[in-house]
Amino acid sequence: MTKQDILKPENLVYQKTKLLTKNVMHYCPGCSHGVIHKLIAEVIDEMGIQNETIGVAPVGCAVFAYNYIDIDWQQAAHGRAPAVATAIKRLLPEKYVFTYQGDGDLAAIGTAETIHACNRGDNIAIFFINNGIYGMTGGQMAPTTLEGMKTVTTPSGRNHEMNGYPLKISDMLALIDGTCYVTRQSVDKLPAVMKAKKAIRKAFENCQLKKGTSVVEFVSTCNTGWGMSPHKANLWMQENMTARYPLGDIKNI
């Protein structure tokens, strides 16, 4: 059987979803943001909610997310995405509203907005991309940076006496009464990607069940900021990031 025999439309089992636009993503080669964008686009496509979904883009490497997924978007000031999403959801309660935020955006400058959106139990999905660093601005320490991890602002490694501890913000969010679903996922391998996609779907479905706020943390990589190849970054993430940020559901009610 030749390649030509297999290459027939009826044998197609996977292709780029039409919800991803033709724009080439500006992300570095191998960046987790690309995989997560793709999964969100696939879920919106599979649920048939393209016209009912509104995303709120962050400040961070994903600031241009609106160029890549063909839905309605609003771009928020740094860290304010959950507040903007709250307003959108309250004005347009029938819509599926989600935020897409990095760890600097969600766990540093936007900590208050994140906690209070979760405490209000706003029926939104929060997609939290934890790559342990400020990617966009050149690799500074984030609240989630691991102890010992070198960044441009912690050149000899993060040290808790000087810089505090890596913040397990999803665990904090799970303690808040307003959240219904808090989970940690990764996107490094096929089984992980499939699980992450299910988590995204559940978070979207919760938006309409009026159960409260859903948070999906993606333990991610920033291979450029970490100074590693994309594959090495995945291995490093598996070994080090998941030890501090274990994968799996933290809360599911």
């Binding site: 059987m1 025999d5 297999i6 290459l7 027939k8 044998n11 197609l12 089992v13 996977y14 292709q15 780029k16 979803t17 991803l20 080439v24 993503m25 992300y27 080669p29 191998g30 960046c31 987790s32 943001h33 690309g34 995989v35 793709k38 996107v187 490094d188 391998k189 096929l190 990607v193 499939m194």
Partner: peptide, 19 residues
């Protein structure tokens, strides 16, 4: 045709066929 390559591709540039 397991799709592992396509699913991890950040730029969604791989299509997979299986028979």
């Amino acid at each position: 045709g397991c799709t592992a390559c396509a699913m991890v591709c950040p730029d969604a540039v791989i299509s997979v066929y299986r028979v």
